[in-house]
Every structure is written in C-alpha cells, then in structure tokens.
C-alpha cells in the first residue's frame, strides 16, 4: 500500500515567498498536496495537478485584532478564488486551480513592506544569539594567545568559540541575503518591474551555508564531550 502522507522540512524565510510557491506547485504536480505548512510540512497524496500557490505574509500593526483580520482576509481571498490551505509564523499559503484569478497582492510595495517588517525582527534576533557566545570566543582567542595547549581548551573554550562562529555565520548569511533582496526589491518597485523573491536554487544555496553552521555547532558539542572525557 503506497504512502498517503508525506512530511518534508520546509523552512522558508520571508524573502523566499517565490521559492515556497514554486516548491508547493512542484509537489502538487508530483501528486502531493500541501495539507499543513510549518517547519515540517505535511503533504497528502492527490492526483498530479497544475495549481497556483500564493504565499503571503500577513503582518499587521500593533493593536490590530489579528484573528478577526486574518479571518476577513482569507474570506475575501476565498471569494476571489484563492483557498486558504495553511499558515505558520505569519506566512499564509493559498491555492487556486484557476488561471483567471488575479494575484492576491497586486501592490508590490505592500508586499515589500510586509516582508521587510517580518524579516527585520528576525534579523535583529539573529545577531543577539552570537553575542551569547562572544565571551567564550574571546576567551578562546586569549587562551591561544597566552600559549595554552589546544587540548586544554577542548572542554569549554573551543566549543564556545565554534558555537559563536556558527551563529555568526548564520546571522551574516541571513542578514546579507535579506539586505540584498531588499535593495533589489526597492529598485524593481521604483522602476515598475516585478519584485524578485528568492527562487528554489538561491534558497537551497543559502540553506547549505546554514547547514554548515549547524554542522559546526554539532561538532562543538562533540568536541566538548571529548574534552570532558580527556
């Protein structure tokens, strides 16, 4: 009996809207319909079909009744032909099987504003994380400068320095990617050109760098264990 459900890791940034749409479209064409969206998304077996997906960031100002606003937004999209599939962390996935239905957001500046606001909070948080390990990294550099043996630093200083490096790589990659996208998006909007979001290929390259970062952190954990044992 063939599988009826499938789970896939689907970590998308706010600037990866097109990549997400592309991915869900390809899955539907392969016979897998998105059922639940999140860091691990769930797909259900379906007839292979050509569908249009739209991933929108619903970002509202403080004081807005979020539940009521999302309900109104998805109802209006539904009337226009876009069915709400699922949502996670402010990103809402809609689908339609029709070609004549207009895009959900036809004002490019509105989409840039939503993506920028959503991304900004995340980017700021990313830079706080490496700061938690900066003392450890500084201690490691100082210890090396003082001539301490590397083996003596394996238990604590080196793993902390590795964590700092990994989180810094993560923060730099994400920030650079967001700033690059924002600059290009503003230029496109100013010249009335379509706004480009990251496609699957660009997103996968960035994700590879992030995996390197996670790999470094895992290595740090292992080294720490080795250091303690020694």
């Amino acid at each position: 009996m063939s599988k009826q459900t499938l789970k896939r890791i689907t970590v998308f940034d706010s600037t990866d809207l097109t990549a997400a749409e592309e991915y869900f479209t390809k899955m539907a064409e392969s016979g897998w319909m998105l059922n639940k969206f999140g860091p691990v998304s769930e797909f259900t077996r379906c007839e292979p079909q050509k569908l249009r997906f739209s991933v929108q960031i619903l970002y509202f100002e403080r004081g807005t009744d979020y539940e009521k606003t999302v309900k109104g937004y998805t109802e209006l999209c539904g009337e226009a032909g876009w069915r709400s599939v699922s949502s996670y962390a402010g990103m809402h996935v809609f689908v339609t099987g029709r070609d004549d239905v207009p895009e959900i957001v036809t004002d490019p500046l509105e989409r840039i504003k939503a993506v920028t606001k959503q991304s900004r909070a995340g980017v700021i948080l990313l830079w706080i994380l490496p700061l938690l390990f900066i003392a450890g990294a500084a201690q490691f550099i100082l210890s090396i400068a003082e001539g301490k043996s590397f083996a003596s630093l394996l238990a604590l200083e080196f793993p902390l320095a590795l964590c700092f490096a990994a989180l810094l790589l993560f923060a730099v990659t994400k920030t650079a990617s967001f700033l690059k996208w924002r600059r290009a998006a503003r230029r496109s909007a100013a010249s009335n050109m379509p706004i480009r979001y990251y496609y699957l290929r660009g997103m996968r390259l960035r994700r590879a760098l992030i995996y390197v970062g996670f790999g470094l952190m895992a290595a740090a954990g292992l080294l720490s264990l080795v250091g303690v044992c020694i």
């Binding site: 937004y73 207009p102 895009e103 959900i104 509105e110």
Partner: peptide, 21 residues
C-alpha cells in the same frame, strides 16, 4: 474588484489581499 475592473475598462485589477488592506 469587479466594479473597479469595469470602471477602468479592464485596465486595473486589484487583488483581494491588496483590497482588504
């Protein structure tokens, strides 16, 4: 959405998300 398209003689299409905002 339909009336806007009619008034603009098909030139302007507003998406539901943009309209809602």
């Amino acid at each position: 959405m339909e009336r806007v398209k009619e008034l603009s003689h098909g030139r302007l299409a507003i998406g539901p998300g943009t309209l809602y905002t």
